[in-house]
Amino acid sequence: MRSWLTLAVIAPLLAALPLVGNNYALRLATTVFMYSVMAQSWNFIGGLAGYPSFATAAFFGLGAYASAILQNHGVPMVPAWACAGVAALLFAAFLGGAILHLRGHYFAIASLIVAEMLREIVNTLPDFTGGGKGMNLPLLKLSVTAQAQFFFYAMLALAVLTVATAIVLQRSKLGFGLRCIQQNESAADIIGINSYAYKTAGFCLSAVFVGVAGAIYASWVNYIDPPDVFDVLISVKPMVMVLLGGLGTIFGPPLGAVVLLLLEEVVWRNFLTMHVAALGVIIVVLVLFLPHGLLALIRERFPTKAMAN
């Protein structure tokens, strides 16, 4: 209940941002929502089930390309986004069936390679996907400010939807099963959890929103190419954000998204050539000194009644 209340308070506040912020603030906020969607989605499989998936970039790129190809064949924008989500979902169901029997590092590598494979495939189909030259998307006939607001609200809606899914999942049988798998998969099997089905469901959930986010991103920036949307950093950043915020929590991933983007902005401005290394430093410090995330730190400082019980 508290989670719903928190969401109900934060979402309208965020929705009011265009009243006060300029386009720069809107762009940053849109990126935060996108990060939040990716982090929250990764949390479904990585945080709850404990499967270190590197497939986020694969879903993101797949969504971006699916939507771009559909739109260039005359499908309107919003239905194309929905189709991108479905495409990512189906792909995850298929992929999950193939690689979810792997554990630990093997799963991580297999999921990492999938994004590389998709990028290679896109590169080798120039007639269909534009190959290495990339793809342009139809331009919106809106003013710059109206566009910024449109994508802001689209990404916000998706982020809120993802958080809502996380809240529902947390209480559901599926969420419980995924947490059991994370604790001890063999034991989960023994007490009658169909771990394969649960993992596949978790994996699909972690794909669908990322696919839509990729589609919205493609429309937002108007141009995509394989190195951009299949970038391995797209797979890594969600993990960093979830670790930052708190593994397996509901509001940890969005919090991590905000903190990571702020850090990124500061670093970008001050150390242009070393910003990747700065991300590396953030990761190392985080893993070594803050393994349970910021949310745990906050709770430690300000224990609530609910926690004390």
Partner: peptide, 21 residues
């Protein structure tokens, strides 16, 4: 796995960027 993987990835970003510079 997640922790060690993320850690070495972070170290790699640092070393790689340092070498690029």
């Amino acid at each position: 796995v997640l922790i060690t993987l993320t850690l070495t990835f972070g170290l790699d970003l640092i070393l790689n960027n340092a070498m690029l510079v």
